[in-house]
Design a protein around this nucleic acid. Structure first.
Length: 718
DNA sequence: CTAGGGTTAG
């Protein structure tokens, strides 16, 4: 079975080192680590759009100053600390040094004292009041019903009683009405804490506008806004994705002369992090540190998440290093965040070491930890680690939830672990809390569909209909892929029709899948059936398929239409489309068109790295090509090489063609069929003995091959 | 729980 981990040995030795506290990074003095330099590296971006070039986005669309620029004058005007002693020599030698020696602290940007909360005194009427609050929660949400229910208040609404009730109200509408009622009673001054409690409840309902109105009311009525008020406003804006509002309120706080404490400060760090403003976050972080702040695990979790989103491994290392330097022990959330980040930065080995370190430190992983790790092992195709982890999860009775189950199923799909997936799926069906949902079924359809187990896949399809579980576009794609490969065109058309009827909107991946099924059709009748499905999803693509077969149509016309079709296609589906179109043309013996399409695909950047040249070796890398496209590329290459030999131009010592060895269970076959085509063309390549899926030739092989060819035969062989 | 900040799926 395909369970052996091909890549395991590559990664086994180098990454088992622990990361925290004993890591090699620990020795690097934090002081010398220049943050402003490291953010110069930008993370890799998605491939360019065919239609329009990437535009340079301006950082601040707002003409006003950035926050860090604003902080500078604010700290000099509103904060009372004396300026640091001027050191003339240092000013001259390092005028722009960002790093500040903690021995001579700079003016503060945050208060090191967390705001104190007032203590609740014991209220003997707690039970009554809480019961009453529950009644209010349950009553009708209309104003009339609410005011009627208020009549039954068991004790007079003193300050303490009102606060207790306010704290126990659940839907935001009720909290809001009660708050307004308390204000209207005029029994006592409504202080900050009342506003804060009300805002917290409004935040649950994402009622930012109401929160903002309350804040303006506080300013108007001269009720103090404190750190709790501001952090509630900021996080509500953040959760509603109103990031500019979050920043606005943070700046308003500074303008009133109130210093943020660390809670407000890390809330705003998270706002900038979610905006992707890495430099701003680092600048704020650093200035906080320079103020003598010792960040806590929550702040580090914010930084870790930000670097993870950017896929920035250096950033993750920086977080680890800062924690080690400050002696901050990571907690479970920090570990979870950093594991996830390691995955996004493409460091499975380091994620594994970090996880082991976490377990050794005595923490028990939770569902999120395990989900992150399973996802990483699946993506890295580390079957052995994945299965070992699963075993540990079971024997240690680590917590499971349905997201973890579904992630395990996806991992099985990635690794082709059909038996294991079947067991997991059965476990889920037996369980109380983790019944299979649409995601679970999709994962199973993926496994059965790509594994060629069409009967099982169809069984699940019927089961889903019976249980009323929604078939989504990915599940549909997996099923159609499997049915197409098995040439069960009738079932395929039926599944497509049912899916569309149930509201599945075909996307480009599904169209690509239908197109690949077209390339598998031998009978015109079958082809027409599949094309009629594709017609509903993407009529332009169908027209293009037909136009390609018309040999009277010239290259320029084909080029324009191809450009148009591919330009409308999602980036990740462009190459598959082109591959399928080439396959279809070759099946119809239209080789000339296939060569044109490969040329166009290369022209529009769909096959980057197809041909790699070094002084020593030229390499044709067909790993991302379909069989037909790989054959076309080989013919094209041989033609080119023949011409080069003929013109006696310079050649390297070695030539190789890479098909890949099919480490993915379902991608085998390319190497085999490429090998046959090499034989058919009588090309001088032979299978490499050291490296599976690699075909090699020397310069001598190639030259004698070229000389043995009659010039007329050399270029295209059908 | 008894006014505020951070983490899970193509």
């Amino acid at each position: 079975m395909a369970t052996s981990a091909v890549h395991w040995t590559v990664n086994s030795s180098d990454t088992r080192r622990p990361i925290f506290f004993s890591s090699p990074f620990r020795q690097i003095p934090t002081k010398n680590f220049n943050i402003s330099c490291r953010s110069a590296k930008s993370p890799p971006k998605s491939p360019p759009d065919l239609a329009e070039p990437t535009t340079n986005k301006k950082k601040n669309k707002n003409p006003s100053l950035s926050l860090s620029e604003q902080l500078q004058p604010l700290t000099t005007t509103t904060l009372s600390d004396p300026p640091p002693p001027q050191d003339q020599s240092q000013l001259i030698s390092k005028p722009k040094s960002i790093w500040v020696n903690p021995a001579k602290p700079k003016r503060s940007v945050l208060s090191l004292q967390r705001q104190k909360r007032s203590l609740y005194s014991y209220n003997p009427q707690v039970r009554d009041l809480r019961g009453f609050a529950h009644k209010l929660n349950d009553c009708d949400a209309t104003k009339v019903a609410f005011l009627a229910a208020l009549e039954e208040i068991p004790h007079p609404p003193t300050r303490e009683n009102a606060l207790l009730i306010l704290n126990s109200l659940k839907p935001w509408q009720k909290t809001h009405m009660f708050f307004n009622w308390v204000k209207s009673q005029n029994l006592f001054p409504v202080e900050t804490i009342f506003y804060n409690v009300t805002m917290k409840s409004l935040r649950f309902g994402r009622q930012f506008q109401l929160i903002e109105e309350l804040a303006e009311e506080m300013i108007r009525d001269e009720i103090e806004l404190d750190n709790i008020t501001y952090s509630t406003i900021i996080t509500c804006a953040k959760r509603s994705k109103l990031f500019d509002k979050a920043v606005e309120w943070f700046e308003r706080m500074y303008k009133t002369g109130l210093m943020p404490d660390e809670v407000t400060y890390s809330a705003i760090l998270d706002v900038y992090a979610k905006l992707g403003k890495v430099e701003e976050v680092l600048s704020l972080y650093e200035r906080g540190r320079a103020s003598g702040w010792k960040p806590d695990p929550i702040a580090f979790s914010v930084l870790g998440k930000m670097f993870g989103e950017a896929g920035d491994y250096d950033g993750i290392r920086y977080v680890l290093q800062e924690m080690a330097a400050l002696g901050v022990e990571p907690n479970l959330v920090v570990y979870n965040t950093l594991l996830e980040a390691m995955g996004k930065a493409g460091k499975p080995g380091l994620a594994r070491s970090l996880f082991e370190e976490m377990v050794e430190s005595g923490l028990t992983p939770n569902e999120k930890t395990l989900t992150a790790l399973v996802k990483i092992y699946g993506k890295a195709r580390w079957a052995r680690d994945a299965l070992e982890l699963w075993e540990r999860m079971r024997s240690n009775k680590w917590p499971m939830d349905f997201i973890l189950y579904n992630t395990l199923l996806n991992m099985c799909a990635d690794l082709g672990l059909e038996e294991e997936a079947r067991m997991l799926f059965e476990d889920m069906k037996q369980s109380e809390r983790c019944r299979p949902d649409s995601w679970s079924y999709t994962a199973m359809l993926n496994i059965y569909g790509s594994g060629g187990n069409v009967d099982e896949a169809m069984k699940l399809f019927e089961e889903m209909s019976e249980l009323g579980i929604e078939l989504n576009v990915m599940g549909c794609t997996c099923l159609i892929q499997g049915l197409g490969k098995a040439r069960r065109f009738g079932d395929m058309v039926r599944v497509f029709d049912v899916a569309v009827e149930k509201g599945v909107k075909p996307d480009d991946r599904l169209c690509g899948c239908l197109l690949s099924v077209v390339s598998l059709c031998e009978e015109t009748e079958d082809e027409d059936r599949v094309l009629s499905c594709l017609q509903q999803a993407n009529p332009k693509l169908v027209t293009h398929v037909q136009v390609l077969q018309d040999k009277k149509i010239g290259f320029e016309t084909i080029k324009d239409e191809f450009r148009d079709v591919i330009g409308r296609t999602a980036v990740e589906s462009r190459r598959p489309f082109c591959n399928c179109l080439i396959d279809i043309c070759r099946n119809k013996n239209n080789h000339e068109r296939a060569h044109e399409l490969l040329y166009l695909g290369t022209l529009y950047g769909l096959y980057p790295g197809l041909h790699n040249k070094t002084a020593r070796e030229w390499c044709l890398d067909v790993r991302s090509l379909s069989i037909g496209a790989a054959h076309t590329a080989l013919e094209e290459w041989m033609g080119t090489l023949y011409k080069i030999v003929e013109r006696e131009e310079a050649l390297p010592e070695m030539f190789s063609a890479q098909t890949g060895s099919g480490s993915h269970k379902f991608s085998q076959g390319l190497s085999h069929s490429f090998g046959s085509h090499v034989k058919k063309l009588a090309a001088p390549f032979r299978q490499s003995e050291e490296k599976a899926g690699s075909f090699v030739a020397t310069r001598e092989d190639l030259v004698s091959w070229a000389q043995s060819q009659a010039p007329s035969l050399a270029v295209t062989t059908a």
